[in-house]
Amino acid sequence: MTLQEIIKGLNLEVITGGDNLNLEVKDGYTSDLLSDVMANAQPACLWITLQTHVNIVAVAKLKDLAGIIIVNGRQPDKETRQKAQEENLPLLLSKETAFQVSGRLYQLLGKGK
């Protein structure tokens, strides 16, 4: 499923990376621990987190993630937006909790079938 379809399905707000939305998303990974994401997130997955500071962009780039969904209606730091913009990394916002977003993405991607 493309990132564009997921954005529609989950009603996400696109902050940066708007020209990178045809990417095929394979999976999701939900965590607020950067080492955990480094160790366990798979390439082309969407990262669901409440972290908003600039270090999340480097983690996403190093792991070839499809993008980041920041949950709970949190706003990314200015530095984070700038860096994500530079890297053309999709930075997406949701007002829902990590639990809700993860559950809905799980269903959208047809996992657990």
């Binding site: 607020d32 621990l33 950067l34 080492s35 955990d36 160790a39 987190t49 972290q51 270090n55 999340i56």
Partner: peptide
């Protein structure tokens, strides 16, 4: 608070 300090860094390097 920034998501560091999981204590997984050195073990991850070793792995």
């Amino acid at each position: 608070e920034m998501g560091f300090g999981a204590g997984m860094g050195l073990p991850n390097i070793k792995k």
